[in-house]
């Protein structure tokens, strides 16, 4: 695209800076998590002490369990519903209106969705808890799964569905034997993305969790750790959280192999 070596080098250097900007702060947190003093300004030696402290923290452990429950269920719901939605949209002649509907939960500011859901649950006298967070997270996760699966369907040769029916299979059998296995990497990719988003989501969970520690999720725990007294433990938490997200997202991307999302 660009021939001139000078502009190429300038662009390359700039790109390097962008990656430094994106990953520098993360690298700092990772390094700090292994710093014995826990202070950003003085390296006193390598230590995994903060990881031990983190594991010993009962509040963190409980929050992690809650988050895993929320993420697992919201992912399950979103994967099933989002995949169906994507398949359904393929059948529409024009999906412009549906596209807009799908993008809504992805771009609506979290704070707006958070207060809307709080108002809704309160108006219905719905007891808040993990289940309300699950319902809330499923909203945006359905949208993300749908978008990812649709990207997979773009490369899906629809004639294999007809071929299966032509060879004597019923519609449901065709779905189970042909459509689902072929789009499965895309579905799994969407599920992993949904899981990551749910694990990391804070505001909507904060508003829909209700009072009490029984439904405190991991990001809520992290928020209060940042907000009310930073202890070096949080660097260990950060490292683990980022590490897990990165792995999940990379696997999710790998499964899709086409343009990244």
């Amino acid at each position: 695209m660009l021939k001139a070596p000078l502009s190429r080098r300038v662009l390359g250097a700039h790109l390097g800076l962008v990656y430094l900007f994106l990953y520098g702060p993360i690298a700092v947190l990772v390094a700090l998590s292994f710093n014995e003093s826990g202070l950003p300004t003085a390296w006193t030696g390598f230590s995994v002490e903060w990881y031990g402290k983190m594991l010993a923290n009962a509040a963190i452990r409980a929050a992690v369990v809650n988050t895993l429950i929320v993420a697992a269920f919201s992912t399950l719901i979103a994967t099933a519903i989002g995949t169906l939605l994507a398949l359904g949209m393929e059948r529409l002649r024009s999906s412009a209106a549906m596209d807009a509907a799908i993008y809504m939960p992805m771009i609506i500011p979290d704070i707006v969705l958070a207060i809307a859901l709080l108002s809704f649950f309160t108006a219905l006298d719905f007891t808040l808890g993990l289940h309300s967070i699950i319902a809330a997270h499923a909203v945006f996760n359905i949208a993300f799964v749908c978008v990812v699966v649709r990207a997979t369907l773009k490369h899906f040769d629809k004639s294999i569905v007809e071929a299966s029916i032509d060879l004597g299979a019923s519609e449901s059998r065709t779905f189970l034997r042909i459509t689902l296995p072929v789009i499965f990497p895309g579905v799994l990719s969407g599920a992993l993305l949904a899981f990551t988003l749910s694990v990391d989501e804070f505001i909507i969970a904060y508003f829909t969790a209700g009072a009490g520690p029984s439904s405190t999720t991991f990001p809520m725990q992290i928020y209060s750790m940042i907000r009310f007294g930073v202890t070096p433990e949080i660097n260990a938490v950060a490292t683990i959280v980022l590490g897990v997200s990165f792995v999940l997202i990379l696997v999710s991307q790998r499964l899709r192999r086409d343009e990244p999302l």
Partner: peptide, 20 residues
């Protein structure tokens, strides 16, 4: 009669082989 119960078979232009 629906296509899955017709004793005729089709060869598709894209061949439509099941990739998996």
């Amino acid at each position: 009669i629906p296509p899955n119960r017709r004793p005729v078979n089709m060869m598709f232009q894209s061949y439509a082989l099941f990739p998996h």
